[in-house]
Structures are given as structure tokens and as C-alpha cells.
């Protein structure tokens, strides 16, 4: 198996060469990725956390925006599948010297790589790269556009807890305007048949979002009354300087997810958060560490989902995932 013959993404799910977003995926494809992630979960529980699925593959983690959890999660996924990995950050790289994204990509390509995992501050950057190089490109977050592997791990976590995604009521709370996570989750949840609402101050809800098929709720109490799953977004602190919200204190008072509010929920409610959390702002510690929280299972699932995506784009098929992981060095 040589590198370039597998870059077409002959994965049995028809994902194509790249994963740039969930908007263009079908329910079958998304469920297929989640199904593929299931057998990979167990690898991380082994004493020797390594299978040779991607042995000989070279993967570049091109992180041009700060990231801890996503980058590390990808790195673990790659290493546990035995890929060779290189990390590039903007500081200390030629990007800092003003090299264009196109040139960075072409130079990487010239070194004969197989995959690029890209995090970038501009919406569309992953697609831009994918259109210009033959390697597989995985979007690890582009501007305010999409963060598909985050949404996939969210979907897997919801499915683990509730048994299904279809028909579930999920409300995304907080800074939807600036959130790529919200967009990917909206597409993923809707494709899989969930009912989706968003909730937050109107300054943080983007225009035209109803046209994507979601309901807009303006009070967090309404969201808690309606939802089975509350997806709490991080409030980026710089939003206050830009005048989207007057103060953190006020945000917490009117939109913070607190124990008191959750205890008034009519039924069971699960709380997810993509991290990193601002405790005491969008989410209180009682909630983050309490029985509602699925925040750490999300992180665990992140590695499995990313292993699945890497495996599928490298040409693996969902049916063979179970046997692939049993292969030994």
C-alpha cells in the first residue's frame, strides 16, 4: 500500500479526500464515522496503546492558531495508529515570516506527506488547502466556519449517553456567532435527525441562523426547559471588549448554566462543553463537575473519533475497523 494510492479516500463511506466540514455529509456518513470510532475506543484502554493501522504514513499537524486539546487529541490518535507525525505552529515557523498558506502547503507536499490536519484562524482555510494539495486534509477548526471532529465527538458522546441522536432536543447556548463548533454541531445534529435550538444574547446569535433550520431561544431558562442536551459554548473573553456583552458578571447572571437552573429542568438533561471552560462565566463548577456533565467523556471520545477519521481517509473501511485494530506489530 503506497501513500498516493490511498489519498482518494476509498473508505467505503464516500467521504472523499478530505474532511473539511459536516455540512456536506449525509446522516449515513456521519453515523458511519461514529460506528468506526466504536472499536477504536478500546485501543486507548489497553496497556500498550498502539496499532499499526497507519504505519508508514506521514501526518503534518499544521496548527496556525493556538490549540491544546484538539492538537493533543489528534496527536494521540495519530500515534496510537502508528503514524509518523510532525507538528507545525505559526510561531517559530516560516508562516511567521509571512509565507503564504499556499506556499506552506506546497512545501509540505514536496516533502511527500500523506495527510495534513489544519487549524487556522480564517474561515475556509481548510477547503483552500484541500483544493490545492493532493494529500488528505482534515479540518481541525477554520475561523468561524467548522470544526468537524469536535462535532463528531459531541455526537458520539450524545449517542453513548442517550442511545440515539435522532429526535433528541439539543440546545447550543452561548456565543454561536463566533463559534465554528456550533456550526459543525448544528449540521451534524440536523443531519442525524436531532432538533436543534440555539440560545444566547442576540448580539451573539448570527443573522439568518433560523434559515439553517434551528430555533432561536432568547432565555437560558427556556433552553433548559426544552432541551435534553445542553451544549454550552465558551465565551471568549475578548468578546466583551468588542461590546457583544457588557460584562462577564452580567453574562453569568443571565446566561450562565448553574446548578439552580438545571435543578429546575423538567427531565434529565446532559451538559456538554467543547472546552476550555471559563468556570463561573458560561458554566458553574457545580455543573461542570456534577452529574449532568459529559465533558470528560467528550475528551475521551475525541481520540477515538479522530482515529476513525484518520483511518477512513487513509482508505480504511468501517467493516474492517475491528480487525484492523487487532493487527499486531
Amino acid at each position: 500500500m503506497t501513500a498516493n494510492t490511498t489519498n482518494g479516500g476509498a473508505d467505503g463511506l464516500g467521504l472523499g479526500k478530505d474532511l473539511t466540514g459536516l455540512q456536506q455529509l449525509t446522516c449515513e456518513q456521519i453515523e458511519g464515522i461514529l460506528d468506526t470510532a466504536e472499536p477504536f475506543k478500546e485501543i486507548s484502554e489497553r496497556r500498550i496503546k498502539k496499532v499499526p493501522v497507519l504505519r508508514g504514513k506521514t501526518i503534518v499537524n499544521l496548527f496556525l492558531e493556538p490549540s491544546t486539546r484538539t492538537r493533543i487529541s489528534f496527536e494521540f490518535a495519530e500515534k496510537r495508529l502508528s503514524a509518523d507525525t510532525v507538528n507545525i505552529a505559526s510561531s517559530g515557523s516560516s508562516v511567521e515570516k509571512g509565507e503564504s498558506l499556499v506556499d506552506t502547503a506546497r512545501n509540505l507536499e514536496a516533502m511527500r506527506i500523506d495527510m495534513v490536519v489544519i487549524r487556522h484562524g480564517s474561515s475556509g482555510a481548510a477547503q483552500f488547502l484541500a483544493d490545492r494539495i493532493p494529500s488528505n486534509v482534515i479540518n481541525a477548526g477554520d475561523g468561524q466556519h467548522e470544526h468537524p471532529t469536535q462535532a463528531l465527538l459531541d455526537l458520539l458522546t450524545i449517542r453513548d449517553r442517550l442511545g440515539s441522536i435522532a429526535g433528541r432536543r439539543v440546545c447550543i447556548v452561548g456565543d454561536v456567532r463566533h463559534s465554528r463548533v456550533a456550526r459543525s454541531d448544528i449540521w451534524g445534529l440536523m443531519r442525524c435527525g436531532a432538533e436543534v435550538a440555539v440560545c444566547g444574547p442576540k448580539t451573539l446569535i448570527p443573522m439568518g441562523i433560523e434559515e439553517l433550520g434551528v430555533t432561536v431561544l432568547s432565555r437560558v431558562e427556556e433552553a433548559i426547559e426544552w432541551a435534553e442536551v445542553l451544549y454550552v459554548l465558551r465565551l471568549q473573553l475578548e468578546r466583551m471588549d468588542a461590546g457583544f456583552v457588557p460584562s462577564l458578571r452580567e453574562y453569568n447572571r443571565f446566561f450562565g448554566v448553574s446548578r439552580e437552573r438545571l435543578e429546575r429542568a423538567p427531565g434529565d438533561i446532559a451538559v456538554l462543553h467543547p472546552g476550555p471552560m471559563n468556570r463561573g462565566v458560561e458554566i458553574d463548577s457545580d455543573v461542570a463537575d456534577g452529574p449532568w456533565s459529559l465533558i470528560l467523556p467528550q475528551v475521551t471520545n475525541g481520540v477515538a473519533v479522530r482515529m476513525a477519521v484518520l483511518y477512513l481517509l487513509a482508505g480504511g473501511s468501517p467493516e474492517r475497523a475491528e480487525s484492523a485494530k487487532e493487527a499486531r506489530e
Binding site: Q23, S123, G143, H145, P206, G208, E211, L212
Partner: peptide
């Protein structure tokens, strides 16, 4: 501003 910008994250 509108549906397309919201979907594209621009």
C-alpha cells in the same frame, strides 16, 4: 450578512 455568511462563518 445573512444565511450564507452564517453558514460559511464569515
Amino acid at each position: 450578512e445573512g444565511k450564507v455568511a452564517t453558514a460559511l462563518g464569515l
